[in-house]
């Protein structure tokens, strides 16, 4: 299928919108009416047609605009993309994985030709046609991870595995929900999750780490995570918190439907073949409350979930200030009818 890429912005005038097709395929993260804290891992396998799970590396109508926004972020702050020196093999693993998936699932838009180590990569939406030598970083205009993640939606962390732990040793992070790669690079799994409330005490991270250390090649895994963002802003970094923080005071009962966005991360984890590192993809999807309530099941369920959120979690996700306004506005979409199980629209 040929995707029509939208021309839109994630800053200043915020012209980002979802098409009707894209609303229906939004990865709504709540499979029941009350909030439940869990690791919620499942195999990252192909799902329903016209869902974000149709392809394992999803490309959608926001692709070109997201890549333009990433380029702007990197101009302002090059430290959003960093790799420790021992991660070069893993960088090539990532380049191969992303090129192969994009070319295989979107042949109208991407082509990868391999002639031994001589590879040709064609990215039509971005007007790129490069030939390079796989394994020779000097033949690309950027280091391999930066090169390919300037052409792939989502944030990317490459996590090294050693000493029975995982280490955040490389990443391209420009669409993050308030964490800093520059601060966390080099940390292990428990360290970089340090600030997350509640989960350490109930053993969530111990179980998740154990699970990930055993991740097998060819069997990627995924989970959904979520928060809310005022305005469709991709770059909600701590670095720029003093710039986007004031947005949170601009929400009113009149504008909440258009201003407040559910921000869902489709997180997928992939064992890499040469380096034995893990690629952690954090793909961000945004939808305004007004767009979301066009699916009646989601309109009923979201206010119920928001009401059941423990205060620590609301605080960590930065929702405390605007939760009452959201719940009030959403109330009219909840007629009290039961909802079906699972995340998909009825």
């Amino acid at each position: 299928m040929t995707i029509t890429f939208r021309s839109e912005t994630f800053r200043d005038d915020f012209t980002f919108r979802n098409s009707l097709y894209n609303i229906k395929r939004f990865p709504f993260p709540f499979d029941r009416d009350e909030y439940m804290y869990s690791v919620n891992m499942e195999p990252h396998i192909r799902g329903k047609a016209d869902s974000v799970f149709e392809n394992l590396i999803d490309v959608d109508e926001h692709y070109v605009a997201e890549m333009q926004d990433r380029a702007l972020v990197l101009k302002e702050d090059p430290l959003r993309c960093q790799a420790l020196p021992h991660m070069m093999t893993a960088q090539w693993d990532v380049l191969e994985l992303l090129m192969e998936h994009q070319a295989q699932d979107y042949p109208e838009h991407f082509t990868l030709e391999k002639n031994g180590d001589r590879w040709r990569w064609v990215n039509r939406p971005m007007g790129i046609d490069d030939t390079f030598t796989f394994g020779d970083a000097a033949t690309l205009p950027y280091p391999p991870m930066e090169y390919i993640t300037r052409q792939a939606q989502g944030d990317f962390c490459i996590v090294d595995q050693r000493d029975n732990n995982l280490w955040m040793d490389a990443g391209m992070v420009t669409t993050q929900a308030d964490w800093s790669l520059d601060f966390d690079i080099g940390m292990n799994f428990m360290e970089w999750h340090g600030p997350v409330p509640l989960a350490h005490q109930i053993g969530v991270f111990d179980r998740a780490l154990k699970f990930l250390l055993n991740l097998q090649q060819g069997k990627p895994t995924r989970r959904l995570n979520w928060t809310m963002t005022v305005n469709p802003r991709l770059d909600t970094s701590p670095e720029n918190y003093h710039k986007w923080g004031p947005d949170r005071t601009t929400v009113t009962p009149e504008n909440v439907g258009d201003k407040m966005h559910l921000r869902v991360e489709l997180q997928s984890l992939w064992r890499l073949p040469r380096s034995n590192a893990i690629l952690f993809v954090i793909r961000c999807y945004l939808i305004s409350l007004s767009e979301l309530v066009t699916v009646p099941k989601w309109g009923r369920r979201l206010p119920r979930v928001l009401k059941s959120l423990p205060p620590e979690i609301a605080d960590y996700k930065g929702l405390t200030r605007n939760r009452p306004i959201m719940i009030d506005w959403l109330a009219k979409y909840d007629d009290g009818a039961p909802t079906s199980a699972g995340i998909y629209p009825d």
């Binding site: 601060f183 690079i185 940390m187 200030r321």
Partner: peptide
Amino acid sequence: GLPLLVRDHYSRRLGAFQGVNIDAEEP
């Protein structure tokens, strides 16, 4: 000059805790 909240989050690489603007939402 921004007023910073000292977060309980430490980077060994930087040898420092993280400071985050405390009144970003309402300067």
